[in-house]
Design a protein around this nucleic acid. Structure first.
Lengths: 344, 344
DNA sequence: CTGAAAGCGCTAACAG
DNA sequence: CTGTTAGCGCTTTCAG
């Protein structure tokens, strides 16, 4: 079903001027006599003409699309991020080509190559992982794009791309220290996968806080999940079965936190009376349900906005060789709602 | 920051053949001698060449992007829908240009015009509203696109576009009838806005069920919300203040349902002992939290998939004048979890 | 102010 | 099998 769209020469013909003139009124580039301009505008309106961005891109050798690659748009975090990105693209006549990788590295690389063909002007991406295994190939694909890349939330080892991240270490540190001030000594963590930087950092923050406060690190209290709900659920069940269970749990992301709460609820473990809890990332729904869970909160939409603004700056830069990588590290906020309390 | 990408003629030069030959191996279109083919492939690999979809689109006079316009990607419903669409585009070398309208009609029309310039091949859209006020202009913009359009979830009056919808009437009818069978007689509804078809239909289903079961419609039990959480919250508070309150509430969408539950929880109204409840659309989180709320459920991701498949069919159609509109109406399922019970 | 013409990177006849 | 060439729809010198 193809209907040949109106072209610039249709307009030129109809208004009896050259295509160059039409182009001029389209772009407001050169001075055009008011009278001819009106003629052209009239023809455009009558024929319902809209210039082709495809032809324009080819001619100008530059597109107005940017690529956005995320692991899962159904994760509210990324939903918010995309919203943030949109708010900037909307104002700058930029389009967003969206790709959802499903946390699949192969898919991700394929998408990047597709985006290259589309000649995107820039890329905002949350890589699936930063495994050493994939790193070399991955990096070269990304660099081969030859457009500015902004990393979002997850880093890529040995890369010098711009990025917007969150200080996971300090966020976790604050949470753990808060537990300690409440008098907790046996504090467990449900960590994310160590193949991602946020996963590693949150564990680091945990260990650091314990160490700085003179509490010995007990490996029995460290559990490794994969950021998905199920693992939070299962690991919490394990925790509840321990001989010498902790009195507080820190959970490294929102999905696992949900799983944890589910397990606690099912086992009739009260929060915080029987088990104190702090999680990483806000869970909007819990607030709606009046469930008071303390969390390390981060400015989600803002992360998207900032990433897009960095990208925008790059697009507007003159020199190609600007090497000073821009890495923004936002600070999370610890929001206390009572679930961290020690009621013993 | 612009780096001129490698072009087809770079490859031609390097492998000492014509651009036509390069194009041939790129597209596997004509027979090329194995030996030359290898030469070309080698050059492509060495220079890390990726053909420009921009140039290709212009030359072929056809793009491989489709537009997707939704009111809010943060609504889990649309998140799922997009996932469904992606699953089909991924397999068909199609790209998705995503636009989030924020339920704003002006924005929506602007997006559609932008998408026209991008020469999208087709459009999947959930219109913000189908007000008579905007209808004429809106319709003409959509038709002016001159590409296949598939409506998703919300209809456009007087239009003959394809679409994927849900039978809201029957879904609501079943829910209300279930209430009645439980012995409820005073049944309230928190309706959506009547400016959208789903809003209207759900109210119709409600009225129909009452009428068919010989229960008189009592306007005092009909409340009008706007699909947002807050309105569900406020209207529920109103309901609780009534002199002769209902014993059951039907809520027309997931967001308002959350608001309703919030209000009930805050007022210490037990579900279903003090108030029975059924809502439209699943709320994943409630299930996770083991909160047993009965809902009218629909196949979300599938709606996206089906929409994209209809679009795909249109794109592959030969004749331009195929007038038989395809309108798929999916059936919802009533999922009972106990919140509908009458314990009196 | 305006028109003619070259060119953006690729495809698709048309020759050979 | 392979090369030449004319566009695709637009922008952008360069003249006038």
């Amino acid at each position: 079903m193809i209907i040949a769209p109106i072209t610039i020469s249709d307009i030129a013909k109809k208004s009896k001027v050259s295509v160059a003139t039409v182009s001029r009124v389209l772009n407001d580039s050169d001075k055009v006599k008011e009278q001819t301009k009106e003629k052209v505008l009239k023809a455009i309106k009558e024929l319902n003409y809209a210039p082709s961005d495809i032809a324009r891109s080819l001619s100008r050798n530059i597109t107005n699309t940017i690529g956005v690659v995320v692991p899962d748009i159904n994760n509210p975090f990324f939903g918010q991020v995309i919203k943030g990105i949109s708010s900037v693209t909307d104002k700058n006549d930029l389009y967003m080509l969206l790709c959802d990788t499903d946390e699949n590295e192969q898919k991700e690389m394929k998408f990047i190559e597709m985006l290259k063909r589309q000649r995107i002007r820039g890329l905002i991406i949350t890589p699936t992982a930063d495994n050493d295994k994939f790193n070399a190939k991955y990096l070269s694909i990304l660099e081969n794009l030859n457009v500015p890349v902004v990393l979002l939330d997850r880093d890529v080892k040995y890369s010098k791309f711009d990025g917007v991240f969150l200080d996971s270490i300090s966020g976790t540190y604050d949470a753990i220290e808060c537990f300690i001030k409440e008098g907790h000594r046996k504090i467990a963590i449900i960590s994310g996968p160590l193949s991602s930087k946020p996963g590693r950092d949150r564990l680091r923050g945990y260990k650091k806080a314990l160490t700085m406060n003179g509490i010995e690190i007990d490996d029995r209290y460290i559990f490794y999940g994969d950021f998905r709900l199920e693992s939070g659920y299962e690991l919490t069940q394990e925790i509840l079965k321990m001989e010498d269970p902790p009195t507080a749990i820190f959970v490294s992301n929102n999905m696992m936190n949900l799983g944890c709460i589910k397990a606690l609820t099912e086992a009739n473990v009260r929060i915080p009376e029987d088990m104190a809890l702090i999680g990483f990332d806000e869970i909007e729904l819990l607030n709606i349900m009046n469930m008071d869970i303390s969390v390390v909160s981060r400015p989600t939409a803002q992360m998207g906005e900032v990433a897009m603004e960095i990208l925008l700056d790059r697009l507007n830069e003159q020199k190609v060789d600007n090497q000073d990588t821009k890495r923004i590290i936002l600070l999370p906020t610890l929001i206390l709602r009572g679930s961290e309390k020690n009621t013993k």
